[in-house]
Write a protein that binds this DNA or RNA. Structure first.
Lengths: 221, 221
DNA sequence: AGGTACGGTACACAACCCGTACAGCATCCT
DNA sequence: AGGATGCTGTACGGGTTGTGTACCGTACCT
């Protein structure tokens, strides 16, 4: 969940942004002045800062520089001043974008999406721990190195994508082997055994790839 | 040196930007319409695209999507339209910033600096090490000198652009040869062998261009 | 205690996949 | 015209993977 720190001295704008951003499933933190913003950012490092420039206690560019001293968090500046020099000053201080008031909420949201999209490709997806192994479904890698055949991968993926959830034999067979294999539970047993041999510490007593007798299998994180 | 591709159908703006950007030590490439922009970007991959939306031949969002199909190069959109919906459309299509005309040159330059500063880490590794070779995807060079054919380049690029990640055979075939070649794995084997002969120290035991049996290939840094 | 159902394991063989070699063909340059 | 280069397409050997069957242990039921 993306955490946004909103900094503005106008309680009305603050409230409006908080409500709207929360409605968009953002985790919103707020501050009303520069020092509060720096403290809040340090206490709960945000994924994005929306910063109004007209703060009572600090110059906007100083707030930006204060943040940039220790974080590369994206910063979107809001400002009532449309002069070019202000924009240049804020952007060169380290801001990522500069929005002039009055602005449309849709535009701000789009700019938030654009900036976070650029800043967060590092967010690795779905790296799953299984015993002493780390499994990256995106890269198709396992560390320490462990090779799986395509069928083994498919089966493992089905289980890992729903941690803790029971997956029926029928479902696994359909997804991995095809709809017409819905009853060939031999294959399942076979390949579950292979996965356990490769991934479980003690294959005879699996701790993560569990059997639900009569039902199916389950990945236990 | 940062290469900027400027796309605008107004010769006057094009000229003004070219002169001013060159004066700032940017390497400037220009295009007057959407198709020209896509071709220019493919021929000389830029570090930044400045894109005017009012092009005669293509919709602006389509140009953005056309670029985003294969590159994450930063895109700054110029537009005479200040409506929120236009901004949202462009930003969500993949643009990084949206500047409304008329704009100050200083502001545009500041936004260029802001966007390139943010994108730098991504562009920095355009030079990739593979064994004893250094591969520069930007200007298509390998040191020590090693020549690759166009097809070999395309294939290598697909792999190098996602270090450590598995790329499926299907994806490689579609990207390099075309969608209708999705099953012609012979070509893949053939060209992977050629790349290994040219780039791997011991082609029989590749260390960087790895096969994932049944799945695809992977570039291991 | 014996039978039955279910899951785990072992193993053989066929099918598939990979790497490689090689020939034909189009294109470009000299 | 001739040669070099790069792309397309086929063939083949060796290794790996998937498929199918058989067998064993355990839990539960009668």
């Amino acid at each position: 969940m993306t955490r946004i720190l909103v900094v503005d001295d106008d309680p009305q704008i603050l409230r409006a942004l908080r409500i709207n951003l929360r409605a968009r499933e953002y985790d919103v933190d707020v501050a009303a002045d520069g020092t509060g913003a720096l403290h809040a950012a340090a206490a709960h490092p945000p994924d994005l800062v929306v910063l109004d420039l007209g703060l009572p206690d600090m110059d906007g560019a100083d707030v930006i520089r204060g943040l940039r001293g220790w974080t590369t968090v994206p910063i979107i500046v809001l400002s009532g001043r449309a002069e070019g020099t202000d924009k240049v000053a804020a952007l060169d201080a380290g801001a990522d974008d500069y929005v002039t008031k009055p602005f449309g909420l849709d535009e701000l949201l789009a700019r938030i999406r654009a900036v976070t999209r650029r800043a967060q490709p590092a967010t690795a997806d779905a790296v799953i721990a299984l015993g002493r192994y780390t499994i990256d479904l995106g890269d198709h890698t396992i560390t320490p190195e462990q090779r799986l055949t395509p069928t083994e991968w498919q089966l493992l993926e089905q289980l890992l994508r729903n941690p803790g959830k029971l997956i029926t034999q029928r479902h696994l067979l359909k997804e991995v082997w095809g709809p017409q294999y819905g009853t060939e539970t031999n294959y399942l047993r076979q390949y579950m055994a292979r996965l356990r041999r490769k991934l479980e510490n003690d294959p005879t007593r699996p701790r993560h790839l569990l059997t639900e007798p009569g039902m199916g299998y389950r990945y236990q994180p």
